[in-house]
Amino acid sequence: MKTVYLHELRQNARTAIIWIVSLVGGTGLYMSLYPAFAQHANELNKVLQNYPPVLRKALNINFDAHFALASFFALVMGFITLAAAIQAMNLSTAITSKEEREKTAEFLLSKPLTRQSILTGKLAAAVTIILSTNVVFMISMRLLLMSISQTSLTEPVFLLMTGSMLLIQIFFLALGLLMSVSLPKVRSVLSVSLVTVFGFYIIGMLDAVLGAKAVRYLTPFKFFDLIYVYKHSSYEWQYLIVEAVFVIAAGIAGYIIYQGRDINTI
């Protein structure tokens, strides 16, 4: 198991570094737009002071500096979690399908290892990569936010907001695992993962058809309302439960299916 784990880490290291750099760099570039936004928000706030209080209340906006930072950061996190979801999905969709597509399955499975330990080794490597991505991301975001804004988010709010990326990635890690072991043949990891991630992203805008409430339960991109997180310093627990149930179920199903699966050789 340990050898599989280390091998997988080594195999994925380069791609992981590229992802981490792009995620941090991309977020950095977006956040560099914040100072201009803060200024606009400030002006807007002054304008809003002149509107009657009833209207202000109806619009439900209050552009104090904290809220300006939180809402802008929430917007950027919305963009960046989409990319992060692709990273996680790429990793886990490849997890077992890659061996079969590249005809290395016979090599690996003829070694004295149980399928369980193979899957565990690979999964542990994927989880390690996702965790490192998030640790690096959180640390650099903390530093970045401190450097571009005088106000800052409180520790719990910051952790919960950036943590939504980790939770969304774990969702897609589980989903990709399930697809990797259950699809008969994955021709291209990239196609499967792009289509799936965008599928879920787009489900988010189908509220009119599926019902606004139902949609929030259906796609991880809607599990975490970051403005809610900002206001209440907590996630909405019902979505956390949905995620936990899905991840556990997908994980167990993944192991069972892989155990019983016929491996495609040449």
Binding site: L33, F37, H40, L44, Y51, L55, A58, F72, L75, A208
Partner: peptide, 22 residues
């Protein structure tokens, strides 16, 4: 969306891009 008809949208017309995007 149309049936909800948020007339208040009018005031947003003069706002800067970044604020609207939020």
């Amino acid at each position: 969306f149309k049936s909800a008809g948020p007339a208040a949208l009018d005031i947003f017309k003069s706002l800067p891009k970044s604020v609207l995007a939020v």
